[in-house]
């Protein structure tokens, strides 16, 4: 039993090293849009505005909760310098498209088939969202999504908006 616990402890400590953190510059990316008639997405285009960047997947359970709230978020800040971008990490486009079909998407959606962008952001779980400030720096990171989480995210975006205005 002792040895079993030992193995358990070893495994528990084998966390893979996290490199990207709050305060660092968000990595550059250029990804194809998942929605028809939309241009490719690059992070440099969102310099100067606050970006809510969400990594999601069609097979991610909590993404069913986060999507309707992201639609509300986009709606709430539509007249302010806030962009909402969702990046799917699906390997199959049709799975991602089927998921999008269940929602009335009002924000930008890109797809990262290779997972390279998710890797660059060191995404720890599904979904993970980042708030990127107007200077392109990561202001906060949020792993997972449960009811009520958007309240905290909204507060952070408001704080950033106020900071940008002063």
């Amino acid at each position: 039993m002792k040895r079993f616990l030992l193995v358990a402890l070893l495994l528990a400590n084998a966390n893979y090293a996290r490199s990207l953190g709050v305060g660092e510059t968000a990595p550059e990316f250029e990804l194809p849009s998942l929605l028809p008639d939309r241009e490719d997405l690059t992070i440099s285009k969102t310099r100067g505005i606050i970006t809510y960047l969400d990594f999601w997947a069609s097979w991610c359970g909590p993404c069913n909760i986060s999507f309707p709230e992201m639609i509300e978020l986009k709606d709430e800040f539509k007249n302010q310098p806030v962009e909402v971008i969702a990046i799917s990490v699906d390997k199959k486009r049709e799975l991602a498209r089927r998921f999008l079909g269940r929602h009335r998407i009002n924000f930008k959606v890109a797809i990262d088939v290779t997972g390279n962008t998710a890797e660059a952001f060191d995404v720890p779980g599904m979904p993970t969202s980042f708030i990127i400030d107007s200077k392109g720096k990561i202001y906060s990171e949020h792993e997972g999504f449960r009811k009520g989480d958007m309240k905290k995210i909204r507060e952070k975006i408001k704080t950033l908006l106020i900071a940008d205005q002063t």
């Binding site: 893979y16 990594f55 997947a57 069609s58 097979w59 991610c60 359970g61 990490v89 699906d90 390997k91 199959k92 799975l95 990262d112 997972g115 998710a118 890797e119 995404v123 720890p124 779980g125 599904m126 993970t128």
Partner: peptide, 11 residues
Amino acid sequence: TVAPWDREVLA
């Protein structure tokens, strides 16, 4: 190690 974005099958 399976990255969080590579877990479609496991899900």
